[in-house]
Structure formats: C-alpha cells, structure tokens
Amino acid sequence: MTLTADPGLAKHALTTMWTIRRFEEAVDDMFARGLMHGTMHLSIGQEAVPTGACMALSEGDYITSTHRGHGHCIAKGAKLDAMMAELLAKETGYCRGRGGSMHIADVATGNLGANGIVAGGVPIAAGAGLAVRMRGGSQVVVSFFGDGAVNEGAWHEGVNLAAIWDLPVVFVCENNRYGMSMSVDRAFNVDTLAERARGYGIPGVTVDGNDPQAVHDVVTDAVQRARSGGGPSFVEALTYRWKGHSKSDKNLYRTREEIESWRERDPIAAFESAVTGAAAATAPSVPPALSESDVEECRILARDRVREAIRTASAAPDADAATLTDAVYAPAGAPIAGGTRG
C-alpha cells in the first residue's frame, strides 16, 4: 500500500505519528514539572517505525514491545487515556499502576507487552508465533527491539527458534544508533545489523526507519511471508532518538551537531512534505494525497486526543494500595490472552 497516495492511509499514518509525538512531549513535560513519577524512555524521532510496521498488521496480530514502547502501543491501537492513566499511577491505567511506562500491554489489541529487559520480548515473540502455529491460526507476531537487543543472548536464541520452526514472526529492529550510550559502531563488528539474519538463515533487510513508507513496504513483505508459512524475517530500521536514553541522560556520548542533523531528518516533517507534494521537485503527475488543511487536521486531532487522555486520566482514581497483592497470581480459570483454547 502506498501511504503517501491514499488519503485515508496518509491521514492514519500522519495522525499516528503525531499522536506518538504529542503523547511523548506531554509526558516529557509533565515529568519535568514533577507531575509524573518514575522514569520513561521516549521515542521522539522514531515514530515512523511503529507507524509503518503496525499499518502492515491485521486485527488479531501480535506485537511484543520494549522499554521504549509508547509508539508501539499507540500504533497498535491502544487507548491513550489508559496509557496516560498508567503513567500517572492511576487505577484505570492499563496495568492498574503496577507496570508504568515500561510494562504497558494491551492484550485486546494483540500487544503482549512492553518489556523492561532488553531482548526480553524476542523469545516471547517466538513463543507467541509457536502458539499461533500450533493453534492453526493465521496471525503474525511483530517483535520490536532496539539495536542493543541484537547483542543479547535472548535475541539469538529467540530468532533461532523462530527460524528453525518457520514461525510467523517479523523481527523489527529500531536501530537508533545507541544502546544507552554505547554506539552501534563500537558494539558491532558488522556493517549492518541485518547481516545477522544470514546467520539464522532468514531474510534480513535494512531500511530508512524515518520513512514510514519504506518501513511499511518491507514489513508488509515480511508479514506476508510469515502469514503464508514462509517463516520469520529481520527488518533493521535506521532511526534516531532525539531525547536521551531515559531521564538521567546528559547526552555526554554524542554531539549536539549529530542530534541536530537527525532532527533535520524529522520523519513527520518529511512525511508531511511527501503527502502534500511539497517534496516533489516538479509538479506531481497525480494530485497530492493530503492538503495543508488535511495535515493541520491530523495535527489537531493528535493534540486533542492527547489532551483528552490527560484530562480523563488526571480525573481517575489513584492506584489503590489496598489491592496491591491481588494480581500476583492469577486465580484458577483466569482468561488467557489467546482466548478460547484448542
């Protein structure tokens, strides 16, 4: 699908990217003002990857996410008010205040959860793929992770299991160039992370992770391959996080110029230019998908959604310590994510 040509898809992609950005800007601001507790990992600058990837998925497909997972949740269709409520430590949050930013899941939309352990979701994704296969389902699992995960043992074990069993999993690496402060140039002895795929006998491709269309195209191919029994693939999306690793980051390991050069490659601005025809050197042969006012409408919609989420979440009751221990163990007969078994 061409996201830049179809007005409906273009609006969806743009609104999703703006929603991720506005959501994260809002939580960054609330944190700075002391209204939010704990820590968080922002993906501002990386919005094109979850947007392009999740638009390649169908209802019922699964994702596993990371500590930097707000974008994955939003792109997979999570409710903003429940996300915001979780960050604000409310009873109405996705995890009832038990998880916070790093553990948001939305089982109803197939999001099996963010993960505080680097590469923790990779073998879990393989297992979800195994469950799909054994249950005779047609779902696909997209496992998001960062460049740092690719050097974890769990990554290698999880990718290998998916490969030897031809599981319907797409491994999507958000290579934002740093595992906290460790640059990919120092952490890898390969030119592209996608080369690692060859070691597992699966296709691997590197794409511009700041272009939702490029991400969408390769993930769509990988999803089709997975759904038709062709096994897993590895997609390396090159992108960059504008903000620090977490709230403690002083950016000592990278230059202001480097950050600025990536801000100039803003995925949202580039996509807006593409969909309005502003990026074309000559007059486009087909009319642009969106007008300037359409673009403004997407921005306003994203802003309003985030504002509404903050309003709703702020008014919700705080997570209640009286029920703190009640979800340590699931009661007998508790429902499971996959729905009715067998």
Binding site: G113, I124, A125, A126, G127, R135
Partner: peptide
C-alpha cells in the same frame, strides 16, 4: 529444541500468553 534454555523458556512464556499451556 536446540540447547537454548533462555530461548525455550521465553518461548514458553510467549506460547502461554498466546493461548497454549
């Protein structure tokens, strides 16, 4: 399975999450 304890247990977690036992 291959000799991959971390991968195996992780796959069990994922399979359990997605409807298997």
């Amino acid at each position: 399975t291959p000799i991959s304890e971390l991968g195996i247990v992780g796959a069990a977690v994922g399979a359990g999450l997605a409807g298997m036992r």
